[in-house]
């Protein structure tokens, strides 16, 4: 399990953090328990600079072109995109439901905001996820401390700005603890307008 340390090459623009891309796809026949989730999720690459990000990202399928039940995750290096990870266990996420056709553009915009450190919430951001589903697609941003309302409000307001969301967009927050309890990512959320 030898891992190379990823760092910016000479002349590249370093990112505040290294980020790792993950991909997961649910096999419909299997239950969505923790074990099968962990088996279905794959690390696909880590980037340390703006240039490395674009090189990697340009070769990825756009999320809007994915089919079935699949997710792209972009998380700070060292944080697994799982509720149980040490960095996530007291955290939660904002959820934005997107009608079909919008996922690729919103995914790119949320990534650029995260890589560019636009959220101004210290170390609180863990990562972002785009979830491709049958009826709608879902964008999520995970933070470390679900109980910190100053942080979660600031993330919500930054999201509205960087994604240019209409004022009536429904924003939903769910703690990972609640997700663990009901074994669901997107049901029973707290809705704010």
């Amino acid at each position: 399990n030898r891992r190379k340390t990823i760092s910016p090459a000479a002349g590249e623009h370093p990112l505040q953090y290294n980020y790792t891309f993950w991909y997961s796809r649910r096999t419909p026949s299997r239950p969505a328990n923790t074990q099968s989730y962990e088996q279905n999720i794959r690390q696909i690459g880590t980037v340390a600079s703006v240039e490395q990000f674009w090189k990697f990202y340009s070769h990825l399928v756009r999320p809007g072109d994915l089919t079935g039940h699949s997710d792209f995750h972009l998380f700070k290096e060292g944080i697994k995109p799982m509720w149980e990870d040490e960095a996530n266990k007291n955290g939660g996420k904002w959820i934005i439901r997107l009608r079909k056709g919008l996922a690729s553009r919103f995914w790119e915009n949320i990534i650029l905001a995260m890589l560019g450190e636009q959220f101004m919430v210290g170390e609180e951001i863990c990562g972002v996820v785009v979830s491709i589903r049958f009826q709608e697609d879902i964008l999520s941003i995970w933070n470390k401390t679900a109980s910190d309302q100053v942080t979660t409000s600031r993330i919500r307001d930054t999201l509205r700005r960087v994604l240019n969301l209409p004022p009536n967009t429904i924003m939903e927050y769910k703690t990972h603890n609640d997700s663990l309890k009901d074994n669901s990512s997107f049901r029973n959320t707290k809705i704010t307008l």
Binding site: G11, H13, W54, K55, G116, E117
Partner: peptide, 21 residues
Amino acid sequence: GTRIIYDRKFLLDCRTSPLAR
């Protein structure tokens, strides 16, 4: 330390720089 902040336009401009190709 200092935080490395990039705006959207800067990041998009880097996409077309020779280093990112």
